[in-house]
């Protein structure tokens, strides 16, 4: 599986994860190149359909990254995001796709290192799980 290069989509809140990615950049924190960011104004914007369709398109892993709990720029968007991630995880289970392929993370806009750590951690996990059963189909 060493040559498996997963495609991972990270839905990132503008106020935290997107900003943290910028911080990681300015600090030149190196991390796994497999993650592709999709910026959203708040993790609360994410909806189950978007996540599920991202898997359908062939993503090997998806995560939603929102502000630290209690610190959402829009108060509770990140809590809603977590609920929706849990919901889609259940559906993935029903479909026979490992729910571990979907995750929710929380971090602050200043945590460049944490952003990189999440990217590495999640990429590692997906590499272990192997390609999505939908990859290339």
């Amino acid at each position: 599986m060493s040559d498996f290069k997963p495609k991972i989509v990270a839905f990132c809140c503008y106020y935290c994860a997107y900003a943290a990615a910028d911080v990681a950049g300015s600090l030149r924190v190196q991390y796994a190149p497999e993650v592709r960011l999709v910026e959203i104004p708040c993790s609360g914007r994410i909806d189950p359909v978007v996540i599920l369709k991202t898997f359908e398109e062939g993503a090997d892993g998806v995560y939603v990254a929102g502000c630290l709990e209690g610190d959402c720029h829009f108060l509770k968007g990140n809590i809603r995001a977590r609920q929706r991630v849990n919901y889609v995880q259940k559906i993935l289970g029903e479909l026979g796709i490992d729910p571990e392929r979907l995750a929710m993370y929380n971090l602050s806009g200043a945590q460049g290192g944490r952003f990189a750590q999440i990217a590495n951690e999640f990429t590692e996990k997906i590499k272990k799980l192997g390609p999505s059963p939908l990859r290339g189909r």
Binding site: V49, L52, E56, I91, E94, L95, P133, L134, R137
Partner: peptide
Amino acid sequence: ASLRILRKMEG
């Protein structure tokens, strides 16, 4: 989407 995904997995 779920139904399409299940089908895709069946090929």
